[in-house]
Design a protein around this nucleic acid. Structure first.
Lengths: 145, 145
DNA sequence: TCTTCAGATAACCCCTTAGTTAAATAACCG
DNA sequence: CGGTTATTTAACTAAGGGGTTATCTGAAGA
């Protein structure tokens, strides 16, 4: 879970073109020209994006004659999700006010000296034990054959 | 869920310093100098990072005399997580081989013409209905008072 | 072999980013 | 008012990102 992985992954995801490429690859392998088609940019530009995705480990490529089919490698996305998961408690709306309250009280009580918490451990709260059963809002369509 | 939000959020998360800042803020509000202390860079540099985080909506700031305490605003992280959630099926190891198989079969069967899938909808699979009960590996410490 | 198709590289542009130091604000403290 | 503390802004450098066009490589196929 070295920071480099997260660096590269998040950086790769920061571009809409690259996210679109990943979305396309989620539907199955595709060649560079196939991937480039939907976009208004040149093919070399897409090649560059692919290189970024490849460096981040999000895409791997095979070989079929002169074609270099790309396929999705989603594993780094797990690292990213894992990192984000530490903050799940913080975006649950219902706790936002409680959180503000706690911070204020703590602030008033004593000025806490805690200059840094490790990057990988945001000291996630004991508030939400985690596995909430919330069903995904996005409707997963049928995939594969 | 405009792409701009994801752009800014993922871009903000692509820097280890900024991720560390967020981790620190998860433990409670902090002033700029408090946030800057752990790092070897100058304080203005940290201010810049904070501005990036602020622009992404990940940090908001109050005012306490000459201090401008920063607090975590985790909502954009939900958008990021939601996007990543669409790919959850793809990183479940057990399916990697099955996926490869399916793609190959489909490829052999007929060359599918599906140039682009929308960015927000990677056509997530019907394979994994989703709410897996996997407990988080990171140990959430106690938080708040 | 000559051609064509599929991608990769190169060389270049422009703009952003991450960092620096130094100076400007802004609010408190005496 | 004058000084100290906290933070922002300015000006600058070095590096990298995203895009372009033009050129090179490499495999297929006539």
């Amino acid at each position: 879970m070295s920071t480099d992985v997260l660096d590269a992954t998040f950086a790769a995801l920061a571009d809409p073109t690259r996210r679109a490429i990943l979305a396309r690859l989620a539907a199955g392998e595709a060649t560079v020209t196939e991937l480039a088609a939907p976009f208004e940019m040149s093919q070399p530009a897409v090649s560059k994006h692919l290189k970024v995705l490849e460096r981040a480990g999000l895409v791997s490529r095979g070989r079929d004659a002169q074609r270099r089919p790309c396929r999705l490698e989603a594993r780094p996305l797990k690292a990213a999700t894992d990192w984000l998961e530490n903050y799940r408690d913080y975006w649950e709306e219902s706790y936002q006010r409680l959180d503000a309250l706690l911070t204020e009280l703590k602030d008033r009580d004593a000025r806490l000296p805690d200059p840094h918490a490790d990057e990988t451990a945001p000291a996630a709260g004991s508030r939400n034990p985690k596995p909430d059963g919330t069903p995904r809002t996005d409707g997963p369509g049928s995939r594969g054959a």
